[in-house]
Amino acid sequence: MMKTITALLSLSLLMPMAAIAADDGSAAATNNCDELGSKIVLGQKEWVTVVSSKQRTIARVDTGATTSSINAADIKTYQKDGKDMVDFKIKTKDAESDVVTLPVKRWVHIKQSSTLTASKRPIVSFDIQIGQKTYTTDFDLVDRSHMLDSILLGRSFLTHVAVVDVEQQYIQK
């Protein structure tokens, strides 16, 4: 009996996600499953549109990162009416947005594995579009110009929205 349960569990781990998602002949049971329940399926890289600036760029999906990050330039923080505010430009490989002004939701100290010191970054919230869906999520603002991807989607975004298939890329069109 125990061998049978172990074998079934092992087999279920090897089944494609589409077969697990539905077994009733519905459209969700196809090999091109792009949704799992109410969550979307993302590959290790996905096309993302920053709604306010209409910039479309590739985002790296990183389950190891807590916070999502976006490439920001000319970051200037200040106080207005007792609230922290930030002005910045969103930079992608192809474009730079006009100046964006947003309230700082909170500050985060990020410690990167490549350095010993932590950096203090502002967290802001704005809308992104992945596939046909729009999500409001938090991003820390940082110069990512030395990185390959302008946007990194971390666990703070992924947790309630997506599951990740690391063998795939560009699942959401």
Rank of each mutant, 00 (worst) to 15 (best):
A7I: 10
A7M: 11
L8S: 13
L8G: 10
L8Q: 15
L8K: 14
P16H: 10
M17W: 08
A18D: 06
A18L: 04
A19G: 06
A21W: 02
A21F: 03
S26G: 07
A27Q: 12
A28E: 02
N32M: 14
L36V: 07
G37L: 01
S38N: 08
K39W: 03
I40D: 00
V41C: 11
K45N: 14
V48T: 09
T49N: 04
T49Q: 06
S52M: 13
K54S: 12
K54V: 06
T57K: 05
V61K: 06
T63W: 12
A65L: 11
T66K: 14
S69T: 09
A72D: 08
A72P: 05
D74G: 08
D74N: 09
I75L: 07
K76R: 00
K76D: 08
K76G: 00
T77A: 09
Q79N: 09
K80Q: 12
D81Y: 05
M85N: 12
K89I: 05
K91E: 12
T101L: 07
L102G: 13
P103H: 03
K105N: 03
V108A: 14
H109E: 09
I110L: 14
K111S: 15
S113W: 04
S114N: 15
S114F: 12
T115L: 15
L116M: 13
T117G: 09
K120E: 14
R121N: 13
P122L: 08
P122S: 11
I123W: 00
S125K: 07
S125W: 01
F126N: 04
Q129N: 02
Q129R: 10
T134H: 00
Y135H: 01
D138H: 04
D140I: 10
S145K: 02
S145T: 02
M147I: 10
L148H: 15
G154W: 02
L158F: 09
V161K: 01
V163P: 01
V164P: 06
V164L: 09
V164N: 06
Q168N: 11
Y170W: 08
I171H: 05
Q172N: 13
